[in-house]
Write a protein that binds this DNA or RNA. Structure first.
Lengths: 246, 246
DNA sequence: ACGCCGGTTTGACCAGGATCAAGCGGCAAA
DNA sequence: TTTGCCGCTTGATCCTGGTCAAACCGGCGT
């Protein structure tokens, strides 16, 4: 269990072992790198979806980004999370009032103009297949999120998020899953469509039930993975979409 | 109060004029048709996402389809609507308990094997561009739906749906927008994550406020379009995603 | 040490929807 | 026709989660 507390001292999250989807090296990366500009972001940094000459594409390399929206008078919403390997472009995002692409942790992304990207897809079948797979996966995740928000109770939503993050970022040590959460408390509340007060109650309840612990050094520990999975009706679905090799 | 009985006498929705996105003819269609099998569905018919040799792709030509899920003990959910031009494949859908692709009205779809489709994309740049655009739009709609479910009140959700359907299916006549809803009442409730009782109250309220009427012949009338748009904070966003030519 | 600050917790209260139950109307099978 | 089923409406009641407010906590600059 290595330390990685990016909340306090933001550090690039190195959580994905090299075999994790999207970060795997290969000839597809080489093609991308010719046209891509690597960008390193700090926490809370906003990335423009339209840049000077035209639309751009971002490909996440490490860290966690998200789409947020904040209609006037309404609460902020965190609509979608982007993990390493994900593809982000303007047209994927509905133009809600106040939408922004924000880096939720220190992250590394590749930026490239759509023209280069489209050309790459048209000429490189491997690249095309990879992109199609990835976009489909992102769509499935968006739909799953809608299902979670719309159909589950507060506790179940939170359990689902913990399972998701555990699968994405977790290190297994002695039966427990350990990671540190790149999301602030309000981020989580906004992502789950709960209010921070309610979320606080839920976390207290989880801690009381032994489903969650906060270790010093900012780590989150899930001591009872199976019990946690039992706390959400969608554990199997989450596993399919978020497991390494997913 | 006339009964809005599309349940009883299902009618093919003919509402999309030819200039509507996705239904426009052209050389891209010709390429598809070589490999596609046209399928005509009846209401409530379920379509398999995996067929004998492998995965298949559906392209909606007319009518309305949807993804539904029904976890044991949980309510049914209508997760996503598919309009003419939309592309549907297995990998776009999270494998929730009880997911099915269902035809919500009489509809016409083209079915083709992924292999043909992928080959088409790899060899036909116009087809590729079209597909990318469409998938991005579908993703944006999925995200928007999550935003609606997660952030709006019951009334606002319903108003949003009426605006969406009005833009998609509506005919403007003397200031009012008229169409018939291809969704049953329970479909709507499941789509908006409301329960049918609550939805019934909301519709009554809308009728009382003059935002909604049920004409004989099963038509729904929106007599006050502007007032309806004012009833949802997301009217502008919906317009951008659902307007003809969108 | 002090006080300020933002984020978190906790309590008391409130409200939007869910749930349950009764009643109604339309259609289909008997 | 009667009977039964199903979907819609409406009322009464309940409960989850939102709102508001106060206390708490840790970090930080002075």
């Amino acid at each position: 269990m290595t330390t990685l507390d990016n909340t306090l001292r933001p550090v690039v999250s190195q959580h994905q072992p090299s075999q994790r989807a999207g970060a795997r090296p290969g000839e597809t990366e080489a093609g991308l790198l010719e046209h891509a500009t690597p960008v390193r972001t700090r926490r809370r940094q906003r990335l423009a979806l339209d840049v000077a000459p035209g639309e751009v594409i971002y490909i996440v390399r490490s860290g966690l980004l998200g789409i947020e929206a904040a209609a006037a008078g309404k609460h902020r919403q965190l609509l979608e999370l982007f993990y390493p390997g994900d593809i982000i472009r303007r047209t994927l995002v509905p133009d809600l009032p106040g939408v922004t692409l924000t880096s939720l942790s220190v992250a590394e992304v590749w930026r490239l103009p759509v023209r280069s990207y489209d050309h790459l897809l048209a000429t490189n079948p491997e690249q095309l297949a990879q992109s199609q797979r990835r976009l489909a996966e992102q769509h499935a995740r968006a739909t799953l999120h809608a299902s979670i928000i719309g159909g589950l109770s507060g506790d179940e939503r939170f359990a689902s998020l913990l399972v998701e993050l555990g699968l994405r970022l977790g290190q297994v040590g002695r039966g427990a899953v350990v990671f540190d959460v790149p999301l602030s408390r309000t981020d989580i509340a906004d992502y789950l469509s709960l209010n921070p007060d309610t979320l606080s109650r839920i976390t207290s309840r989880f801690k009381a039930h032994g489903l969650l612990q906060h270790a010093r050094s900012g780590h989150t520990v899930l001591p009872a993975w199976d019990a946690l999975c039992a706390a959400t009706p969608l554990a199997a679905t989450l596993l399919a979409l978020h497991a390494p090799r997913g």
